[in-house]
């Protein structure tokens, strides 16, 4: 009987656990038993789901330049401003020489558009541990941040976030993909 109780207790905990499932994958059979808990869960998790949906829209691939209030210079491939991504070497946050003009162009633009502000989004390739890559992405973004500040950009216009390896540009497990993932994206937020 002891075992029986134990099994029952574990089963109960699982039932309760299942109560906090999101609505995506619910087990109706189990949820029936814990409807009271279910309600509470809905509030916390749904709000949290909505938030992600909102941000998802913001980062959708079909976002127009206009929506961010940027001029046509950003679409001109000959203009350095068209380059919104700065790439890095492996396990490095040193700004490569070839990207200095790009950073300078963005700094110039920000100085001339003090109402604009950007998020410098640091990224890393998928190798290594995720939290370390978060830190590495942040250091990359900070390198740009420091450089832009030195070039006269007001730090109020600059924000940093690092996604580490969580948002790769390329999914492949090869150097060609990794190169694209070791980056800082310059993200104009509009007004």
């Amino acid at each position: 009987m002891r075992l029986n109780k134990e099994v029952f207790a574990i089963a109960l905990s699982i039932m309760i656990l299942s109560g906090c499932s999101s609505t995506d994958e619910k087990d109706s059979g189990l949820l029936d038993d814990v409807s009271a808990v279910d309600n509470e869960k809905d509030t916390s998790t749904s709000g949290y789901s909505d938030g992600s949906l909102l941000s998802g829209e913001e980062f959708g691939s079909n976002v127009t330049i206009d929506a961010r209030g940027l001029g046509p210079e950003f679409s001109d491939p000959t203009n350095p401003l068209s380059k919104g991504v700065i790439y890095f070497m492996y396990d490095s946050s040193q700004v490569r020489q070839d990207f200095i003009p790009v950073i300078a162009a963005h700094s110039k633009y920000l100085q001339s558009h003090p109402s604009q502000h950007i998020i410098l989004e640091g990224h890393a390739d998928e190798r290594g541990s995720r939290e370390y890559n978060i830190a590495l992405g942040e250091q990359r973004a900070k390198s740009i941040f420091r450089m832009m500040k030195m070039q006269g950009v007001n730090s109020n216009q600059l924000e940093i976030v690092s996604y580490g390896e969580e948002k790769p540009e390329a999914e492949g497990m090869d150097e060609a993909s990794w190169q694209q993932n070791r980056r800082v994206e310059v993200d104009y937020q509009g007004r």
Partner: peptide
Amino acid sequence: EPRVIASSLEPIM
């Protein structure tokens, strides 16, 4: 018996 306890369009880590 997988149960999703949180989901988001932004990274969870």
